Simulated assay, not measured.
Amino acid sequence: MTEEQKTQEERDETAAIVAEQNDRFRSTWGADFSVPGQIVFTRGVADLSPAAKAIIMQRVQQFSEFTEANDPYGDHTFGAFEFEIAGNSYKIFWKVDLYDTAYCMGSDNPADVNVTRRVLTVMHASEY
């Protein structure tokens, strides 16, 4: 069944399943192996201090401010926040992309963890 053929109810149900899986993956920082994937920092985030990266990790794991504006599909694939450390301010984005098991193409069935791999990318807003 193509995405166009799905009813709104089916799309909402799939989005809720994907959101739960994304939340589990993100909140455990990938340690819940029932939702496979990997976490990637962009170069700009990777170059930050260990203390800044620890704050980012905690904020991504605890993120819960999903709204219609940042989560229009209800699947919890994006978040943004700001923080300060050592006199520097940062605006951070994170996003979850859903791939096939080879990480080559988008997943044919994002709600099925057996055929889907997540990539959680953390970046400066300016790197988006």
Results as ranks from 00 to 15, higher is better:
N88V: 09
N70L: 15
E68S: 11
E13V: 11
A80Y: 15
V40Y: 00
D23I: 05
P36S: 03
V18K: 02
Q38W: 08
T7F: 03
R11D: 06
Y99A: 04
A102T: 02
F66D: 14
A86N: 10
N109E: 15
G44W: 06
G37R: 01
A19L: 08
Q21N: 07
V45Y: 06
F93N: 15
E10C: 00
F41A: 02
Y73I: 04
D23V: 07
G37M: 00
Y103G: 05
G44L: 07
M57R: 14
A54N: 04
P50V: 07
S49E: 10
I92Q: 10
D108R: 08
K95P: 07
N88I: 08
K53E: 09
Y99C: 01
A80K: 15
A15C: 10
A46L: 11
W94I: 08
A16S: 14
F66A: 12
Q8R: 11
G44C: 05
F81D: 14
D75A: 10
F41E: 02
V96A: 00
A19Q: 09
Q38K: 14
R24D: 04
I92K: 06
G37V: 04
F63P: 15
E84D: 14
R11N: 09
T7P: 04
K95E: 12
D23E: 12
T7R: 03
T101G: 05
F25W: 03
A102Q: 06
A16C: 08
D100H: 01
S27V: 00
E68Q: 13
F63I: 06
N88A: 13
A51W: 00
V45C: 05
E84F: 09
I85A: 03
Q58R: 08
K53A: 09
V35D: 00
S89K: 15
L98Y: 02
Q61W: 01
G44A: 07
D12P: 08
H76W: 14
D32L: 02
F93M: 13
A19E: 07
D71I: 03
I55P: 02
K53H: 05
A69D: 14
A15L: 12
G79E: 14
E82A: 12
A19G: 10
S64T: 12
A15F: 11
A31G: 02
A51L: 00
R24M: 06
V96S: 03
E9I: 11
I56T: 12
A52I: 05
G79S: 13
K53T: 04
D47S: 06
P72E: 11
A54K: 10
D47V: 06
T42Y: 02
D100G: 01
I56C: 07
A52D: 14
E9Y: 13
S49F: 03
N70G: 13
T14P: 02
F33W: 15
D32Y: 02
A54P: 01
N88K: 15
R11K: 10
P36D: 01
Q62N: 04
S34I: 04
F63L: 12
Q58L: 01
Y90F: 15
L48F: 06
Y103S: 04
R24C: 05
K53Y: 08
E68V: 10
D108W: 09
E82T: 14
I92R: 09
A52W: 10
A15I: 07
R26I: 05
A52E: 13
T7S: 09
E9Q: 15
